[in-house]
Simulated assay, not measured.
Amino acid sequence: MPISDQFTSIHQQSYEIDFFACSPSGRLKWVDLCKFIQSASADHSVLGGISFWDLKTHNQAWVLSKFRIEKKAELPQWQDKITIHTWIERLDGVRSIRNFEVYLGDLLIAVASSLWVIINTERRRPELIALPHEHFIKYTDKKVTDTPFAKLHKGNYQPIDQVRVKLSDLDMVKHVTNIKYLEWCIDAAFTCQEAVDQIQVIDMHFLKETRINDRCDVLFLEENNMRHYQICVEDVVHFYCFMN
């Protein structure tokens, strides 16, 4: 698609929190906050001519490699309206760092940083983006998170759940949609919504694609008030996450 006349390098998108995006506490679920953030990213890519459909013509797609989100205030409630600001920090042709700020009115409630990779959807390997992106200003000094992406944490993880990948878990790239991993971890590790609401930071690493009918082991390790998770298929780590 051509570049929209509404395109700007810093994009703003507003959303109203609906009933189905809220947890038992009445606040926006972490998983749905991540969905809103990625929706704003997708809308920006559409306006800028580098969206899923644009890349599909070249057998390419964006896939999420790392995602860190930090809560700055209480998450919004049903019928609240949030505004998400997003921009590209870096894009070297294969990888792109995209940042986000989430506002409730004038109150900054969350920030996030994401690392995306272009893959060839037939070879399932990274490659240079086939589309021009020079019209996107790269804001290399406009960072948002307090610390960089976390490093993978090793230790004696224990199994806490097992899930089988179903058709509803897949996205348009035909692998498990990235936010599904976070949902599996929260469902496996928490039985109390109040504990989920106390999470301040979530840092996720997407290491390997997961496909339909894969059997995934959810593993857990708690050290120094940090919750670490792995999702493995046949003892190979496909996903890592920590929550503070």
Score class of each variant (00 low, 15 high):
R164D: 08
T177L: 11
Q79A: 10
R95W: 13
C34S: 11
S14V: 08
R124Y: 09
V46K: 13
I212L: 15
V165Q: 06
T191N: 13
V233C: 09
L55C: 01
L128K: 15
L131Y: 01
I199N: 02
T140V: 12
Q230K: 11
L104A: 08
Q13L: 13
D43F: 11
K66F: 05
L75T: 08
F36N: 01
I231D: 00
V63L: 07
A195L: 14
R211E: 13
I119T: 05
L107D: 14
L104I: 05
N213T: 14
K208H: 13
Q200K: 15
L104M: 10
G93Q: 06
Q6L: 13
H238K: 14
S96D: 03
A40I: 02
C232Y: 03
K180C: 09
Q193R: 04
C216R: 02
Q162D: 06
P24W: 10
W30E: 00
V63S: 03
L219E: 10
I179R: 05
Q77Y: 11
Q198V: 07
V173R: 04
E16I: 15
H133S: 11
Q200V: 14
K35T: 11
A188T: 06
L108T: 08
L64D: 04
L33S: 02
F100T: 03
P132H: 01
K154P: 00
T145H: 06
G93P: 04
E16F: 12
C34Q: 11
I137H: 12
Q158T: 15
H175D: 02
F242W: 12
I17G: 01
I186F: 05
V201W: 03
A195H: 13
A73I: 05
S39A: 10
K166E: 14
W87M: 05
N59F: 10
L91T: 02
D169M: 03
Q38C: 07
K180M: 11
V144G: 07
T147D: 11
H44G: 04
I3R: 10
H135M: 01
G93I: 05
H85W: 10
D54A: 04
I119Y: 00
I212P: 00
H228G: 02
S23P: 00
Y229D: 00
Q13N: 12
E70L: 08
L128F: 12
R227T: 06
C34R: 03
D217F: 05
K66N: 14
T86S: 13
K166M: 14
L104Q: 14
S41Y: 07
N224W: 02
I17E: 02
G155M: 09
H228A: 06
P159C: 04
P126M: 01
S9A: 08
L219R: 13
Y103Q: 02
A150K: 14
D92N: 14
I199L: 13
M172Q: 14
T210W: 00
W62T: 01
R125Y: 09
H58A: 08
F52L: 09
